[in-house]
Design a protein around this nucleic acid. Sequence first.
RNA 1: GCGCCUGUAGCUCAGCUGGAUAGAGCAACGGACUUCUAAUCCGUAGGUCGCAGGUUCGAGUCCUGCCAGGCGCACCA
Length: 555
Amino acid sequence: MKEFIKQLILGGARRAFDKGLLKSDDFPEMEIEAPRHEAHGDISTNFAMVSASSQKMAPRKIAEAVISCMDPASVIEKTEIAGPGFINFFLASRAWYPTLDRIVKEDDRFGCSDFGAGKKVQVEFVSANPTGPLHVGHARGAAVGDAVANILSFAGFEVQREYYINDSGRQIRTLGLSVWLRLCQQLGREVEFPTDCYQGDYIKEIAADLHGRMGQELAEKDEAEAVSTCAKFAANVILEGIRADLVDFGVEYDQWFSEESLYASGRVQRAIEDFTARDVIYEKDGAQWFRTERYGDEKDRVVVRNNGITTYFASDIAYHMEKFDRGFDRVIDVWGADHHGYINRINAAIDASGRHSDQFNVILVQLVNLLRNGQPVAMSSRSGEFVTLKDIVDEVGKDAARFLFLSRSYDSGLDFDLEVAKQKTSENPVYYVQYVHARIAGILMKAAAEKVLNDDEHPWAGNKELLVEPEEIKLLKILAAFPETVEKSAATLHPHVIFTYLMELASAFHGYYNRHKVITPDRELSRSRIFLVFAVKAVIRNGLQLLGVSAPERM
RNA sequence: GCGCCUGUAGCUCAGCUGGAUAGAGCAACGGACUUCUAAUCCGUAGGUCGCAGGUUCGAGUCCUGCCAGGCGCACCA
C-alpha cells in the first residue's frame, strides 16, 4: 500500500512537472507513514516538504500541484493537504480487506518477510558458566536472545542459536575444588571450606551424588586429579540442569559450544600464532598483548599472561574467529550490561582479523531488579542464596515471565516483581493478550455449536464487505501493520516492539468485543465478523509465538 | 577520572531512520455484566519530555556541555 501511494505521488509529480506546475523533476526521497493521529488520515507523506528546497516553492503549493495531477484511485477516499504541507490519504474500507485473505493464506507464516534475504545469523545467548544454576539475569537474557532469534528467523534470516560453555579456566577449577572439599567433608575429613569457593547447597548435592558413585575411588587419588574429576562431573551435572531449566523456559539451542574444545582443537593457539605473525599480538613484560588500542579500545589487552596461562580474552578471540569461519554473515551476542567494557576488544579482534566489526552486534541487556511486593530480594551468589530461573518458572510461570522480560526495551533496567508477575490481575499484561486468544476461541466454538457456519465451511467464509464499523476498520489496520512491525523489530533487534504491538491489537480487540457482538441474529454479518476475529486470533498467536509465549484456547 | 545504559503523567514505561495536538498500563474518580469469558470495556483527571545551549522549515527524537541514577573500567571469568 505504501509503495502504491509512493508511485501515485511520483506519477502526479512527474505530470505536474510536464505541465510546468513544478520547476524541477529531481524528486528527493520521501517518507510514507501512518500518521500518529487518526484525524490525519491513514497514510501520509512529507513529499512536498522535502521537495521545498529543490522546487523553490512553498510546500503547500507543491502539494496542490501534485494532487491536481495525480491518477484517481478507487481505494483512496480523500486526499488533503495539512499542516506545514503533509499530504494525507484517507483510504476506503475495502483497501484493508485483502489483509484478511492474506492472513488466512499465510496463516502461521503471516508476518514473515524476506527482509533478512536468507543471510546466516548466529545468536549466542545466556552462555552462563556451568558453575551454578541460572538466575534472573540469565532469565532476561534467555527471553531476549530467544525472541530475537525467533524474530530474525521470521524476518527471513537463517538463524542458529548457540550456547557457549565456559568449561575451561579458573572458575571450573574452583567448582571442582568446591565439590571435592564438600566430598571430603562427607568422607569425614576435617577440611576448611574457603569463602571463595561456591557456597550453594547444590554443591553439596553434587558431592553427595559423586560420593555415592565413586567416593572411595576418588579418595585414593591425589588431590589434583580428584579435583579435576569433580570439576568435570559437576560441570556436566550443572550444565544438564541449565539445559533442562532452559527447556522449561521454552528455550532450545541448535548448538552447545565448548570453550575447552577451542583449546583441544588448537584453535586458540592458532589464533595467537596468526595474530603474532601479523604483529597484532606482541610481547611485553613477559606477557602477550593484543593491539586492541589500535582498533579503538582504550588500551591493549593481555592474551597470554606472564605465567604462560591464556586469558579468557584469548579463547574469546578464537571463538569469534571460529564463528565467522563457520560462515555466518552476522554474529549477535547477548550479554549482561556488566560486560559492556568487553565490546571494544572483541570488535578490535574482529577488525584485526580483516573482517568488519559491523557484522558483529552485541545486545546489552540491562540488569534485572528482583522485587517481592516492592521490596528488593537479596541476591548473593556468594552465599548461594538467589532466585533461580527455575524458581521463577515454578512461581510465576513461563508465559508471564517471558512476557514481562520482553515488555520493556533491554536498554532499560527492569524491575521484576515476583508477586505482581504471578498475580492474575490487570497489572499483568500477559493475560490481557492471551485473553484475546481465549475469547476468540470461545466465539469460534459457539459459532460452531450454533451452526453459524455450515459444517463444511471455514471461518473465513464470510463476506468482508460487511465489516464497516470503525472498530472493525481499526482492527484491520492494526492487523495489516503486523508484517512491518516484525520487520522493524528485526531491524532494531528489539523484541519489545512486538510486545507493544500485541498490547495495541489486544486493546483494539477488547474494545470491539465489548461494543459489538460477533455472533448476532444476522447470520451473514456474523460470518463476516467471524472472519475478522479469526484473523485477529491468528495474528495474536503469531506475535505471542515470536516472544515464546503460549496462546491458550481457554483461560 | 574514563566508558556504556537510563532520565517522558503520582508509579512502570511506549514514542519507528527528526514531523502535525507527546501516548499506554497501573494508581485516583465516575460509569457498563439476565449477553460470544468483567482476566474486559467506556469516560474524567493527570506533562516545562532532567537542565542549558546548538543544528533547521520543524527537536522528546540529532550535536555539545552540565545534573542525577544504574553498571563497568584486571596478567578475573
